[in-house]
Design a protein around this nucleic acid. Structure first.
Length: 692
DNA sequence: ATAGCATTAAACAAAT
DNA sequence: CATTTGTTTAATGCTA
């Protein structure tokens, strides 16, 4: 039933291939900085206050534009999530459902109708259709928004120049505005690129200039109360949206709409005029007249001889005819109102997305050790590698985190948002192909730093960490003060450190157990109080599995003699190990703990490290165990000679001749007091280990 | 095309 | 008897 794990890998790949993520992120990066630095510009005097205001306006314009881009990106990613391959194994019925879950706001009645009408189509086709529509709509919205903001910028620029402020300030403003304009230009280019990429991907088959899909359905799908709430948020929020986190209220539109005292504002035309019967009305005339009085050729809704009202695109010869058209076609009626609602929704979504991408950016910058401008943002994952199961598990394990969750900004909207991986992969260790997960072979085993850097993120976001189970288990063990954990403690570490592992316990717990058994590097040690696991980091680096098909506990066709025959040193080692079976010595433990630091020298020189020792003892015991286990339980303390001396049990394992050498003393119960064990066994709550 | 690895599921066993 | 802990195998998918 989990067979789709691999199939969704494809989706991940496609998401990455979309390639537009990079630009957006770069853009985001620049924009973020701008926004930050300007947003806190203090108003020194009257002129400065105006300046600050204007700057805010421009900031907002930038943000709006960014949001639009981001929204597009999100749409793309959502589309990427749904890989065609996955559908091969999924009942067609599920497709619309999944789509709806992922983008509930965009599922309009119309779209649903289409879905219903086109049952003959394959799920993939349905999805493509949906994506096309969404992309189209967004594209149009974006264009319109962009135009508006650009015009607003120009307006402000002119006004500033007319304001007759101190020359110095004026120059400053002009410079800044120039910079903003340049940025806007850049954004436009990015947008166009994005458009092209959309088209290339077949998401956008219709010319962007053509009328987009009607917007009314979207609005119709909304509940009046929701609209009211939305309106409230859009219009009344004076709160700074810089506090991204949970606050997703908009500032851009609000300030511009609401502050009638600022005549320079030209952005949005939406004014909360009346609210009757749960219906909102939009009033525009005043602002229009004002704006085009001063700038006859500049109107947010007018450009290139075309009415830019969403979904309109009517051709207007001149500005006057445009005004006529505006007043006649886009008067205060239900339709216009609905369109405004839609616009609000769009803005809301974009803001949400912006917040999320801000976090992502922050994480990226943090990871790259770039001084951040937003220290508060929560860290985000690196996702150096696109994990196959990442997308799958995320979508499957936390489906509810996909749709709504405006309140859970840490949870990625879609599991496919792996855009950063492109950047990080190249900037990180190897420039090689994106690896599915951390590869032990690359000398880049998972390090404490790797996990720690994103710790906060994974603690809160239900995103599957891009690390293998083995890496995580190792990390868990190494983080523990004694470098040893019981199975239950390992479980707890997982749930504590990763939100993702707070669900589907049966699955990942089973995986952990399997990994513990399967990987050579994990050594089970048993004492009279139970058993715990340690890690042999040298072995971990080797990344070897316990050989399959080799004699194992449940394989009857292998016996001790045979083992000894294959490993002449077995007996000797047993003896020596016996001699070394002393309580855990601190130095050894320390070196054990040090594992995070590769012990290349010892390894390369053939000197058995502690890990080797552990392996050796394991292997030796394996032989002995194999023999005695057949009849009785192997856990009764004191049964085996070794246990008699010291209650140490290790995982039985097929022998590896070349390693079964040298003395060894494995972790035992040196620092093990009964109460400690007890404590350990019942440590369910996130305790001290939470530190670090 | 193939081998090796990672993940997941499942069967089974032993211990608790 | 139910649950936990371990072991083992198989299937699947991905990467080198």
């Amino acid at each position: 039933m989990m067979q789709e794990s691999g199939t969704e890998t494809k989706s991940n790949g496609s998401a990455i291939q979309n390639g537009s993520g990079g630009s957006n992120h770069l853009l985001e990066c620049g924009g973020l900085r701008e926004g930050r630095s300007n947003g806190e510009t203090p108003a020194v005097d009257i002129g400065a206050a105006d300046l600050a205001h204007a700057q805010q306006q421009q900031q907002q314009a930038l943000q709006v534009a960014r949001q639009l881009l981001l929204q597009q990106q999100q749409q793309q990613q959502v589309s990427g999530l749904k890989s065609p391959k996955r559908n091969d194994k999924q009942p067609a019925l599920q497709v619309p459902v999944s789509v709806a879950m992922m983008t509930p706001q965009v599922i309009t009645p119309q779209q649903m109708q289409q879905i219903l009408q086109q049952q003959v189509l394959s799920p993939q086709q349905l999805q493509v259709l949906l994506q096309q529509q969404q992309a189209l709509m967004l594209q149009q919205q974006l264009q319109e928004f962009y135009k508006k903001q650009q015009e607003q910028l120009q307006l402000q620029l002119l006004q500033q120049q007319h304001a007759g402020k101190q020359p110095k300030e004026q120059q400053q403003v002009a410079t800044q505005q120039l910079a903003f304009q340049q940025q806007l230009l850049q954004m436009q280019q990015l947008q166009q690129q994005h458009l092209l990429s959309l088209q290339r991907q077949g998401l956008l088959t219709i010319q962007p200039g053509q009328p987009a899909l009607p917007l009314q359905p979207l609005a119709q799908g909304m509940i009046p109360t929701e609209l009211q709430q939305l309106w409230k948020e859009v219009t009344s929020a004076h709160t700074a949206e810089e506090t991204t986190g949970n606050n997703h209220s908009s500032l851009d539109l609000t300030t511009t709409c609401v502050s009638s005292s600022a005549p320079s504002k030209t952005s949005l035309i939406m004014n909360p005029h009346a609210s009757t019967n749960g219906q909102l009305s939009v009033h525009t005339p005043k602002r229009e007249s004002l704006s085009h009085e001063e700038h006859p050729h500049s109107h947010p809704l007018y450009g290139h001889g075309v009415c830019k009202w969403p979904g309109c695109e009517a051709v207007c010869e001149d500005f006057q005819s445009f005004l006529k058209h505006l007043n006649s076609e886009h008067a205060l009626d239900d339709r216009s109102t609905a369109q405004c609602r839609v616009q609000m929704q769009v803005v809301q979504q974009l803001e949400l997305q912006l917040a999320k991408d801000k976090e992502r950016l922050q994480a990226m910058m943090t990871h790259l050790h770039v001084k951040s401008t937003e220290p508060k943002a929560a860290p985000q994952p690196l996702n150096l590698v696109s994990s196959v199961t990442l997308s799958k598990s995320a979508s499957e394990a936390s489906p509810q985190s996909l749709p709504h969750t405006p309140t859970t900004p840490t949870a990625p909207l879609t599991p496919v948002t792996q855009g950063p991986s492109v950047i990080t992969t190249t900037s990180m260790h190897t420039v090689g192909p994106i690896r599915r997960r951390y590869s032990d072979k690359y000398n880049v085993p998972i390090s404490s730093a790797d996990i720690a850097q994103n710790q906060e993120f994974y603690k809160n976001a239900e995103v599957r960490p891009p690390f293998t189970y083995a890496s995580l288990i190792r990390q868990a063990i190494l983080e523990s003060p004694e470098k040893q954990l019981t199975l239950n403690e390992i479980y707890n570490w997982f749930t504590r450190m990763f939100a993702y592992f707070r669900r589907n316990a049966a699955t990942w717990k089973g995986a952990i157990r399997t990994n513990l058994s399967l990987h050579k590097c994990f050594i089970r040690v048993e004492d009279e109080f139970g058993s715990f696991w340690t890690v042999d980091d040298e072995e971990f680096k080797r990344g070897r599995h316990i050989q399959r098909g080799r004699p194992r506990k449940y394989c009857p066709d292998e016996n001790f003699d045979e083992l000894v025959a294959h490993n002449p040193s077995l007996i000797k080692n047993m003896q020596s190990s016996h001699a070394y079976c002393t309580p855990l010595n601190a130095a050894l433990q320390a070196s054990m703990a040090e594992n995070s630091i590769p012990l290349y020298t010892t390894a390369s020189m053939g000197n058995p490290t502690l890990g080797n020792l552990a392996s050796a003892i394991r292997e030796e015991l394996n032989g002995a165990m194999e023999h005695t286990n057949s009849n009785e339980s192997d856990s009764s303390p004191g049964r085996s000679p070794m246990q008699a001396v010291h209650p140490v049990h290790v995982k039985e394992e097929p022998l590896d001749p070349e390693e079964a050498e040298g003395p060894l003393s494995l972790v035992t119960t040196a620092n093990h007091s009964p109460d400690f064990d007890h404590d350990r066994d019942y440590e369910d709550e996130p305790v001290n280990e939470d530190m670090e």
